[in-house]
């Protein structure tokens, strides 16, 4: 059986013309030998008069971009104070690091915790494993979880890095300056 026409590989079809620079010698060679070097030196000299760039962390902090992904926050509705999270576990399903654990339960209709039929009785994120990919935020159908700006998450104890629902619901201490528009 012969192969159909389209399947025959013709290397010629992939060939393309290589763009080459000017020939060696003359002004072009001179420019290449000194011009580029001087251009590099200009940058070096420029830095010399700029002064130190080291930031005195932790007294001083780098500002992060508005879309920086740091410590998570669980949200509540501002008017009703009900939790937005309904404990659907979609964030846990999306999480590539498998570090979210949700155990849902029935909402008491008389005294609801969330705005849905169910709410998260347990909501934990293991910050030691989180890779701050933001998939949980994308997966959440209720915008209940978002990633904030705080990146100072180290602790003395691994188990303290498991953030509980209460910790995630609480307003985080904003320790991180935000970059201004265009900064």
């Amino acid at each position: 059986m012969s192969l159909p026409e389209a399947n025959v590989y013709d290397p010629q079809a992939d060939a393309f013309e290589v763009q080459r620079g000017p020939d060696v010698g003359g002004a072009a060679s001179f420019y290449r030998a000194f011009g580029e070097t001087l251009r590099g030196l200009k940058t070096t000299m420029g830095r010399l008069i700029e002064g130190p760039v080291t930031i005195q962390y932790p007294e001083e902090k780098t500002a992060v971009y508005p879309r920086f992904r740091g410590r998570h926050k669980l949200h509540k509705f501002e008017d009703s104070d009900l939790e937005k999270c309904v404990g659907c576990s979609l964030c846990a399903a999306a999480c590539p690091a498998d570090c979210i654990r949700v155990v849902a339960t029935d909402n008491d209709p008389a005294n609801p915790t969330s705005a849905g039929e169910r709410y998260a009785a347990v909501y934990e994120i293991n910050m030691a494993r989180c890779i701050f990919c933001g998939y949980c935020e994308m997966a959440c159908p209720f915008d209940a979880i978002t990633l904030g700006h705080d990146y100072e998450l180290s602790d003395y104890n691994r188990s303290d890095l498991i953030f509980t629902k209460e910790m995630l619901l609480a307003e985080p201490i904003e320790r991180t300056p935000l970059r201004l528009e265009g900064e």
Partner: peptide
């Protein structure tokens, strides 16, 4: 079983 778990849990 209501709300006890999700298929991926």
């Amino acid at each position: 079983y209501r709300f006890q778990a999700r298929p991926w849990d």
